[in-house]
Design a protein around this nucleic acid. Sequence first.
DNA 1: CAATTATATGATTACATGAGCATATACTCA
DNA 2: TGAGTATATGCTCATGTAATCATATAATTG
Lengths: 121, 121
Amino acid sequence: MDTVTVLKAIADETRLRILALLYTAGDLCACEIEAVLRLTQSNASRHLSRLRAAGLLSDDRRGHWVHFQIAPTAFGRYPFVASAIDAARRDLPLVSADLDRLERYRSSAYTCETIREWASA
Amino acid sequence: MDTVTVLKAIADETRLRILALLYTAGDLCACEIEAVLRLTQSNASRHLSRLRAAGLLSDDRRGHWVHFQIAPTAFGRYPFVASAIDAARRDLPLVSADLDRLERYRSSAYTCETIREWASA
DNA sequence: CAATTATATGATTACATGAGCATATACTCA
DNA sequence: TGAGTATATGCTCATGTAATCATATAATTG
């Protein structure tokens, strides 16, 4: 992927939030990302596949669930992505709120399979 | 300027070319940028003002000519910009061609005031 | 002041993008 | 195999963006 394409992929608030979330969380399934960031299902899915198409995310299906993580090659190939995530963590207010919700979710007893109840609570 | 706005400002091939050019050249007037990158006058002007609005360029009018450079604060505030310029220099073919033309212009006797003749040659 | 040249901007057109809704597909389990 | 759930995708609408042409503004020089 060329530099411009990758830059366009990360030049979006929602996609930066996804990257910042995965940067902290390491690995999450689509429904967890959707719930923590409070996105609609189709919206989350579209942004995830755009990031994957740009080579920034890798995915891994486990039964119903598709788990995403930042592609192992992403930072090596596109160093500015790491740097942009860093900036987003510092100055995007939504990112802080997202990471708080991640923390709350993780310290609860909810999982992938019960996350819909968590989200509506 | 927030991270997303700055990322959108650099997520464009023409604007990356301008940044890469100024990164090497240091300081150029609008008509030089226009000629080296082979852009139309209005197109160059619009991209330049978008980069300036994002805080990435500073300008300095000297008589007829407005000189642009990368804003001294740009890399400190937005480290990913330096990193993206670096990537663009490595893999955007147009950037290499631009830098070649810069070199040819600089080693010629043409200046700001005669650049139109240079451009049409 | 008038003519000239550099730069900026309004108006338009073509195209890309993001969101939402509805629906399709992929997978599991009874 | 059929029901149910997770994810993907077609369609549409509203908005944003980049390019071009024409014109305006700013500065210099005669």
